[in-house]
Amino acid sequence: MGFRQRKAEEMVFKVLMIGSTVIVTGSLLLIIGTVVVKGFPAMNLAMITQTPKGGYYLGKEGGILNAIVGSLELAGGATLLALLFSLPIVLYINLYKRRKSRLAVFTRFALDVLWGIPSIVYGAFGFILMMRIGLRTSLLAGIIAVALLELPIMARAMDEVVRLVPHSLQDASASLGATKLETALHVVTRQCLPGIITAILIAFGRGIGDAASVLYTAGFSDRIPGALLQPAATLPLAIFFQLGTPYPEVQERAYASAAILTLIILVISLLSRWYGRKFQKNSIL
């Protein structure tokens, strides 16, 4: 192949790469821009400090504090619940089971399938589950549905980092007389801490932004949820309801709510990067 041709190839790829980068960054900015510009007129302190007053959805005063708190509680609870299951699953299939054992392969496959299931199905499943155990729409029911949604995301993201832990590291710990559990908790988890934190925050981001799974499970309420068995408002549903009204000023509030949700997710991403770096320092490799 001639030099010119190789040079041309190089150029084409450069253009492609720069092009995709521009598209990705551009869409991000465009989305944030739209949300901020459209929501800006409705942005005020009341938005984040008050709950909806009577007639809020007709354009009267109030805010969406109920949904902000509801979303944080719900996503927080769900993330905690998902973590309680994902970390043991991941440590188990990587450290206790041979990595290529049938159980490990099957678990990974199952998680991948669960990942692909649309969130409305989780919502419906959660709803059926609620009927079975006699639970009404509530924060708790929402937490369970969202935890189910988050579990495969969190577990697979953790799996990807725990898999990379070299065998020799486990051997080093085992040679000192450590049990598998001690190795898992003190060595492997520590080595993977940045990745684990990232996995947790990714799952949290997915959970807090999802509307379909909470639609039938968490319900909606204009009050700040004070107990697990009360219904809870969430930001995605608040956006959905406000956008669905015929009043432009309420629709503006939907964009303002979206801006708040986006901001929360942005902060989460930044935190995950910062924490990742902070805990990297002890990692080997």
Partner: peptide, 10 residues
Amino acid sequence: LLSQKPQVLP
């Protein structure tokens, strides 16, 4: 155990 490549803990 001393391995071929030293394996420090994280």
